[in-house]
Design a protein around this nucleic acid. Structure first.
Lengths: 158, 158
DNA sequence: ATTTACAATGCAAATTTATACATTTATTTT
DNA sequence: AAAATAAATGTATAAATTTGCATTGTAAAT
């Protein structure tokens, strides 16, 4: 199902980076990127991704991501502020270094973000392997971290 | 235009307290409260209130408030953590007491919440008069405070 | 008190979005 | 590998939402 995941990610990126006001509009942007599909599938994708449509003073209505479910406490897990050392990318995956013994708690928190981008994590003692879904870019992970992890700074990265 | 404001508030309350999945559904709830209107007007109200519709695992799709515009920095003004003393309700308005000299800065921050509930504020030296829109209940204001003001606690209220 | 300007609303039609059903494609089981 | 099961998608249609236009109600100005 590689295709679908890449499409889902492409949708997220488009919605994140531009103000899209209808599925037809999004559909044509996706087609420009080589995705072939119908509006029906897009509607289902948006439902799956929990993309909301909200009024916007400029464009009337726009789609927006809602990863951080406003009222679902389970999704509001805070990432531990301490223990993070560095993050690195290789083989399409992310390798996060932590202080000794901190890996599993951070990995646990990462899992509980329930973010689409992260397919899963495996933690050792001071290292976490983060496996992104197909189609997820390094930048997507960085954005995720930055948006959900107060103490996380790009500059600390390699 | 008293009627319209009360209707707008009723809409906010309903959306906040229940999971509504269509305008028709919301319409009938409003009618049960004595509001008479068409679905077209409701659509315009929702647009005015910037109510978003998002996928929900239980009900398919639900409406939700988006006061806290996720990406609009101007709406993310933080309320000053210090200076608040107490809040009181009288004559349909709220009287907030602050430490001496703190009233205007807090009132300024309140204004910049751009919240629908607050029609306006007037600040003296240590007192702020908060004028709610018609139809806004005491509880609505308290909810607003609690959701936007980290340090605000109900117990401090009278 | 009229007139003028603007905001709010209904109606009907256009647009947009969701979904039932059938079909294809992938995955799992035997 | 074949059969059985589940997942993904297209087509056509239904359902839901938005909007242009006309009208009515409200407020402001003369």
């Amino acid at each position: 199902m590689k295709d679908r995941n890449e499409r889902l990610m492409a949708i997220r990126r488009l919605i994140n980076s531009s103000n899209i006001s209808s599925q037809e509009e999004l559909l044509s942007l996706l087609e420009r990127q080589g995705f072939r599909m119908t509006q029906a599938t897009l509607s289902r994708d948006l439902k799956y991704l929990k993309v909301a449509k909200m009024p916007d003073s400029e464009k009337g209505y726009i789609y927006m991501l809602t990863e951080r479910q406003l009222n679902d406490p389970s999704e509001n897990e805070e990432l531990p502020i301490t223990g993070f050392v560095s993050i690195d990318f290789a083989q399409g995956m992310a390798i996060m270094k932590t202080l000794p013994g901190h890996a599993s708690s951070i990995a646990y928190a990462l899992d509980n973000l329930n973010s689409y981008e992260i397919a899963g994590t495996i933690a050792g003692d001071d290292t976490i392997l983060i496996i992104p879904r197909d189609g997820v870019l390094k930048g997507d992970l960085v954005n995720l971290m930055k948006s959900r992890w107060p103490g996380f700074v790009k500059e600390e990265m390699n």
